[in-house]
Design a protein around this nucleic acid. Structure first.
Length: 280
DNA sequence: ACGCCCGCCTGTAAGC
DNA sequence: TGCTTACAGGCGGGCG
């Protein structure tokens, strides 16, 4: 399930692959993928003939800047993948919902079994990411937007929410999903249900540090590919960070810090994994 | 303002 | 063995 580290990995790969390329043709094979547009044709018309000038990211959204000042926005949802193929002749994977063909140099394909992902073109330029009206609701980006820990404290204190819910709230901070929320909270030594306005200054610093360092390390490891093998990078390769997981998907296994058993609870309909001894 | 639930989806796995 | 059910969860919307 692609979260910030996986999306950032794809972004970096895309940068070397699509900048400067001109879009010759766009094929939409599943209309749901471009559901924000009135029709697949309308989406196509916005893209054909354009060149890619930049590749950015805001939270879990990829932003491909185009030469007319518009932006192709990609959200991978739960199961979305972008695939870079050198030849149009390469067989299409099942659930290939959109295909972008470049004038030279193959295709970019969007594959998404669960169809929670989407593509859309925003008429606004990509600069800064959240400048797009469609993404104006996103909160700060944990890797792009560095802030002082007391500023972070002020943001946390402005809410009265459980820490996990707040970390996963894209309007608060953009890019963290269920998996990295559990990993960040383990690294911070804080429970998922601690109230955001109840932290000591030391705990605020630990949380901020854990958030930035966990995500940065996961980017270094090119993201997490779990047993379901949903996440693949632009070239079909898996990530390495799942081997470093301390909590997520480790129910019944020993905590790597204290050896007590990692437990799993349901919170807000989602699985939450944590160590009752290390997280307070 | 926040928590919680639903609907949207399909593939996988557990249960009977 | 074969069918049914549960689960995975990002996001937007509704409700209490």
């Amino acid at each position: 399930m692609p979260e910030l580290p996986e999306v950032e990995t794809v972004r970096r790969d895309l940068q070397g692959e699509v900048i400067g390329r001109r879009i010759k043709a766009v094929e939409v094979r599943n209309g749901r993928t471009v559901r924000r547009h009135p029709s697949a044709k309308a989406f196509r018309n916005l893209l054909e003939g354009r060149s890619v000038t930049s590749v950015g990211r805001a939270g879990k959204y990829l932003l491909l800047g185009l030469d007319d000042g518009s932006t192709l926005v990609v959200h991978l949802g739960m199961s979305g993948q972008l695939q870079r193929v050198k030849s149009a002749k390469e067989p299409k994977a099942p659930h290939t919902h959109a295909v972008i063909t470049f004038t030279q140099g193959g295709q970019l394909r969007f594959v998404d079994p669960r169809t929670f992902g989407e593509l859309f073109v925003s008429v606004a330029p990509a600069e800064g990411g959240r400048a797009l009206p469609e993404l104006a609701h996103l909160g700060f980006d944990p890797l792009e937007d560095v802030m002082s820990w007391d500023r972070f404290w002020a943001l946390l204190s402005a809410h009265k929410a459980g820490l996990k819910n707040l970390l996963m709230d894209q309007e608060f901070v953009a890019g963290i999903g269920n998996m990295y929320a559990d990993e960040i909270l383990f690294a911070a030594g804080l429970r998922y249900d601690r109230m955001s306005d109840s932290l000591s200054s030391q705990e605020v610093r630990r949380l901020y540090r854990a958030m930035v360092e966990t995500l940065a390390e996961a980017v270094k490891r090119r993201g997490s590919t779990l047993a379901d093998a949903q996440y693949r990078d632009l070239f079909g390769e898996v990530g390495d960070y799942q081997d470093q997981h301390q909590a997520y998907d480790r129910e019944g296994e020993p905590c790597r810090r204290c050896r007590s058993t990692i437990v799993r609870v349901k919170s807000g309909g989602r699985s939450t994994f944590f160590c009752e001894h290390c997280q307070v």
